[in-house]
Amino acid sequence: SSEEQMCGTHRETKKIFCEVDRSLLCLLCSSSQEHRYHRHRPIEWAA
């Protein structure tokens, strides 16, 4: 659903897949302290 594609923290669309956590992130989350050094892919890659 579209609600699942929205970041609850930043209200941004989740467009990035974190390979380490195997989760979807928004651009702001992907550059956060928690995920900054993880490997990321565009969401299309994970589909």
Rank of each mutant, 00 (worst) to 15 (best):
S1W: 02
S1P: 06
S1N: 15
S1E: 13
S1C: 01
S1T: 05
S2P: 12
S2R: 08
S2D: 07
S2G: 10
S2H: 09
S2K: 10
S2M: 05
E3T: 05
E3W: 10
E3P: 09
E3L: 09
E3I: 05
E3Q: 12
E3M: 08
E4M: 13
E4A: 09
E4C: 03
E4G: 02
E4F: 03
E4Q: 02
E4L: 08
E4H: 07
E4Y: 07
E4W: 04
Q5G: 08
Q5F: 06
Q5K: 14
Q5D: 14
Q5T: 07
Q5V: 12
Q5I: 08
Q5E: 03
Q5H: 07
Q5L: 12
M6H: 09
M6N: 00
M6L: 10
M6G: 04
M6E: 10
M6R: 07
C7P: 03
C7T: 01
C7Y: 01
C7D: 03
C7N: 02
C7I: 01
G8L: 12
G8F: 15
G8V: 12
G8Q: 11
G8K: 12
G8R: 08
G8S: 11
T9N: 06
T9A: 09
T9C: 04
T9W: 07
T9Y: 09
T9P: 04
T9D: 06
H10W: 00
H10L: 08
H10S: 03
H10P: 04
H10C: 04
R11F: 03
R11S: 09
R11Y: 00
E12V: 11
E12P: 02
E12Q: 13
E12W: 05
E12M: 10
E12I: 07
E12T: 13
T13H: 13
T13Q: 14
T13C: 09
K14L: 08
K14Y: 04
K14H: 02
K14E: 09
K14A: 12
K14W: 05
K14T: 03
K14C: 09
K15T: 10
K15V: 06
I16H: 04
I16Y: 11
I16A: 02
F17A: 03
F17S: 02
F17K: 08
C18H: 01
C18Q: 02
C18I: 01
C18E: 07
E19C: 08
E19T: 04
E19A: 05
E19S: 05
V20F: 08
V20Y: 12
V20K: 14
V20Q: 13
V20I: 10
V20G: 05
V20A: 14
D21G: 06
D21M: 03
D21E: 10
D21C: 14
D21T: 13
R22Q: 14
R22Y: 05
R22S: 10
R22W: 04
R22T: 02
R22F: 01
R22H: 08
R22E: 15
S23C: 11
S23V: 10
S23I: 12
S23W: 00
S23P: 02
S23D: 11
S23R: 13
S23N: 01
S23K: 12
L24T: 11
L24V: 10
L24G: 08
L24K: 06
L24P: 09
L25F: 04
L25T: 03
L25Q: 06
L25A: 03
L25M: 04
L25N: 04
L25D: 02
C26N: 07
C26T: 00
C26F: 00
C26L: 01
C26M: 00
C26W: 00
C26G: 02
L27D: 14
L27V: 14
L27F: 12
L27P: 14
L27E: 15
L27S: 13
L27R: 14
L27Q: 14
L28R: 11
L28S: 14
L28F: 06
L28K: 13
L28P: 11
L28E: 15
C29A: 02
C29N: 01
C29E: 03
C29I: 00
C29V: 00
C29Q: 13
C29R: 00
C29S: 00
C29W: 01
S30G: 07
S30N: 04
S30A: 15
S30Y: 06
S30T: 09
S30M: 09
S31Y: 08
S31N: 14
S31M: 06
S31T: 07
S31A: 12
S31H: 05
S32Y: 09
S32M: 10
S32D: 12
S32R: 13
S32E: 06
Q33R: 08
Q33M: 08
Q33Y: 14
Q33G: 10
Q33C: 01
Q33L: 12
Q33W: 07
E34Q: 06
E34W: 00
E34S: 08
E34A: 12
H35G: 01
H35D: 01
H35A: 03
H35M: 00
H35E: 00
R36F: 03
R36N: 12
R36S: 09
R36A: 13
R36V: 09
R36C: 02
R36H: 13
R36Y: 02
R36D: 13
R36M: 07
R36G: 05
Y37Q: 14
Y37P: 08
Y37K: 13
Y37A: 15
Y37V: 08
Y37H: 14
Y37F: 11
Y37W: 09
Y37C: 12
H38E: 07
H38C: 01
H38I: 00
H38T: 03
H38L: 00
H38A: 04
R39Y: 07
R39Q: 13
R39N: 15
R39A: 11
R39C: 06
R39S: 14
R39W: 07
H40C: 03
H40I: 00
H40A: 01
H40P: 01
H40Q: 10
R41M: 06
R41P: 06
R41G: 07
R41S: 13
R41E: 09
R41Y: 03
R41T: 07
R41A: 11
R41V: 03
R41Q: 14
P42C: 12
P42M: 06
P42T: 11
P42V: 06
P42G: 12
P42D: 05
P42E: 13
P42H: 08
P42I: 06
P42N: 11
I43S: 12
I43M: 06
I43T: 04
I43F: 15
I43Y: 15
E44W: 03
E44N: 11
E44V: 03
E44G: 09
E44T: 09
E44F: 01
E44A: 06
E44K: 07
W45G: 15
W45S: 15
W45Q: 15
W45H: 15
W45E: 15
W45C: 14
A46L: 12
A46K: 06
A46V: 09
A46N: 10
A47Q: 15
A47V: 14
